[in-house]
C-alpha cells in the first residue's frame, strides 16, 4: 500500500535540538485575524501581556473582548472565557470566534485567579470577567503569572476596575445604537492607552455591525 515506510526514522536528538530555534519571534506573539488586528498597535497580542477592556456594563466591553478572542482563535490560537455566566453563543459565532477552540468556564466561583492559573499553560488568550472588586495584590499576582507563562489575559472590567496598570487598555468612552425597524449596529468610541511608548489614541468603530462583526477604519493619527 505504501511505496515507502509510512513512519520515518527518528532524527537524532542532538540534531533536533540544534535545528529547533530557542524561541521563534512569531511565537512570542498571538496572531490576530483581520479585522481585529487593526485594533492593536502591533497588529497582534504580545504573549505575557495583559490587555484590559474597560467600559460601563452594557456598553460593549464584552463584545470587544469576545472580538479579540475571535481574532485570536480564527488565527489558530486556543481561547478561554472565564466568569461569563451567560455567554451569547450566536454573537460569539457571528464575531468569528472558533467555538471548537474555545473553553468556557462560566462560574469559577471565588477561584477565578486559580482557574486563570490552571489555564495559562495551555490556552493562548483568556478573557476574564472577575466577579466584584479585584484586590490589587491578586491582580498583580495573576498578571505576573501570565507574563511568566506567555499567555494573554484580557480582563473585562468597568472603567478603572483593573487595579494595576495593564500593558494595554482599550476603553469604551461612548457607545450608541443605531436602529431602523430593528437594532442595526453600534458606534463605539475606543481609547487605546498603554505602557512602554504606546501613544494614546482614539477611534470610532462599528461593533457589532449589521452582520454582528467589526467595521471601522484603522487608527487615525
Amino acid at each position: 500500500m505504501f511505496a515507502f515506510p509510512p513512519s520515518r526514522p527518528p532524527l537524532p536528538e542532538e540534531l533536533v535540538a540544534k535545528i529547533r530555534p530557542v524561541s521563534l519571534a512569531g511565537d512570542r506573539r498571538v496572531a490576530l485575524a483581520a479585522p481585529w488586528s487593526a485594533l492593536l498597535p502591533e497588529m497582534s497580542l504580545r504573549r505575557g501581556s495583559t490587555l484590559v477592556v474597560a467600559g460601563a456594563p452594557g456598553t460593549g466591553s464584552l463584545t470587544l473582548a469576545l472580538g479579540l478572542l475571535a481574532g485570536a482563535t480564527a488565527a489558530g490560537s486556543w481561547g478561554a472565557v472565564v466568569g461569563i455566566d451567560n455567554p451569547g453563543v450566536v454573537a460569539m459565532a457571528d464575531l468569528g470566534v472558533d467555538l471548537a477552540h474555545t473553553l468556557l468556564v462560566p462560574r469559577p466561583r471565588g477561584l477565578w485567579a486559580q482557574v486563570v492559573g490552571d489555564l495559562i499553560d495551555g490556552i493562548d488568550v483568556i478573557v476574564l470577567r472577575p466577579p466584584g472588586r479585584v484586590p490589587p495584590r491578586l491582580a498583580r499576582r495573576v498578571a505576573d503569572r501570565v507574563r511568566e507563562r506567555g499567555a494573554v489575559l484580557v480582563p473585562v472590567v468597568d472603567a478603572g476596575g483593573w487595579p494595576v496598570p495593564p500593558d494595554l487598555a482599550l476603553g469604551i468612552t461612548e457607545a450608541r445604537w443605531r436602529g431602523t425597524s430593528r437594532l442595526e449596529s453600534r458606534a463605539m468610541t475606543l481609547q487605546l492607552t498603554g505602557r512602554g511608548g504606546v501613544r494614546p489614541r482614539a477611534r470610532t468603530v462599528e461593533m457589532p455591525d449589521r452582520h454582528g462583526r467589526l467595521r471601522g477604519a484603522p487608527w487615525s493619527d
Partner: peptide
C-alpha cells in the same frame, strides 16, 4: 432574528 445577536444570553 437577524444579527447582531446579544453578547449575553440567559439560559
Amino acid at each position: 432574528l437577524r444579527p447582531p445577536a446579544p453578547a449575553v444570553v440567559f439560559a
